[in-house]
Amino acid sequence: MNWVFDNERPIYLQLVEQLKILIISGKFKAGEKLPSVRDLAFETHVNPNTMQKALNELENSKILYTQRTSGKFVTTDKKLLEKLKNELALKYGKQFFENMNNLGFSYDEAIEYLKKSKGEI
């Protein structure tokens, strides 16, 4: 995974977003133990305090849980993970239609382009 940050937005929020994608996509599986804060911070080249803040945020939204003395784990709540996946898919969809709308395309035209671009992936 390539960790790239945009200095214009809080780094911890970007970590939350990128970690969510790793979890949703199954790079970190349900119930799996996460690397330590220090290791994750080192891999992403960020300050451990910032990584801690991101993990706390994920824990507050129940995506992670802490097991006393043994570290942080991905939730085993598959429904929650499914919900997150749907939310993100809708967000990407909305972004696409917004961008196409800004270019002056109608919904139907945008769908046509979506179909056309499918062949090019």
């Binding site: 200095n7 214009e8 809080p10 780094i11 929020l13 080249h45 960020v46 910032t50 803040k53």
Partner: peptide, 30 residues
């Protein structure tokens, strides 16, 4: 990106002392 807090010093005075992420969030800027 590695800083927790930033201290801006100008002409011998501290003009800003704040969390880096808080500043980014408030001002939508790096």
């Amino acid at each position: 990106k590695v800083l927790d807090d930033v201290i801006f010093i100008s002409d011998g005075k501290i003009i800003l002392n704040e969390s880096a992420d808080k500043l980014r969030n408030e001002r939508k800027k790096s």
